[in-house]
Amino acid sequence: MIRYILKRLVLMIPTILLTSLLIFWAMSLTGGDPVMTILPENATVEQQEALREEMGLNDPFFVQYFRYVKGIVQGDMGESYVTRLDVFQTFMGRLPMTLALGGTALIFSVIISIPLGIWTALNQNSWKDTAGMIFALFGVSMPNFWLGLMLVLLFSLTLGLLPSGGSGGVRYLVLPALTVGLGLAALITRTTRSSMLDVLRQDYMTTAKAKGASRRRVIYRHGLRNAMIPIVTAVGMQFSYVMTGSALAEKVFSWPGIGLLVADSITKRDTPMVTGSIILCCILMAIINLMVDIIYAYCDPRIKAQYSRKG
């Protein structure tokens, strides 16, 4: 198992390199001329040229890219054109805010959705199932930034219960976390329900009943652990949803996380900030995906065996 994890970590390197190449290339096409952004408007052509030379912008593309990769390894991803602050440190400074938002949303949605999914599956075709499924269907069909705005309208502007934006204290976290969490809960509820329904039909459930196990025991001891496999995958796959959702929620609520950082950097054409943030997000996603796979192996002995065999 440990060898498997190490192997995966090694395999991550080319993926990250390629991803960063792609993004670096794409952003170098779009970035415009940073010199114009940095220098005051009345700068002379000589001053511009000197700055270009100093920043290495006249070097061939691959030279620039390798310099950049070398930087990544050392935790140095350049400076923001706008604030002149270190990209890596700015990103890391904002990361806890996004993790707090995404984490709260994820925990909140898992707590709601897994019991709800199981409950609807067990009551299939009853009004309880229908009610749960309608909730989930609305949840997945709603753009979550709109949900955020509606929550602001209701809780902040109409009822005056919660702040409509900014950060500081748990009160500020409630609405953004709800915004991300409700859509996520709806998604996971749907997966949990269909995975549970699938498991309920399996032959080994009949075997367990035929042994004389009670309904409760059959569902929780035999059903749930099997159903957890696709649920864990689904939750794992939703991390990119969590990030996207958080980015939008951050914009709606001015929550100073990575999403807002990227959105602001795009408007300000702050290329190193955008490039660095996207690459760091990808590394983050790769690590999260690996963690999901490890949990996955814990749930399913077949996969665990596969991992160990492959080494």
């Binding site: 794409a26 952003m27 779009t30 990030m243 990227v262 955008v274 990808c282």
Partner: peptide, 14 residues
């Protein structure tokens, strides 16, 4: 590995 919205951001900015 890249969230969809980030891909879109990159493409749109090109």
């Amino acid at each position: 590995a890249i969230p969809n919205i980030m891909i879109a951001v990159v493409v749109v900015s090109i």
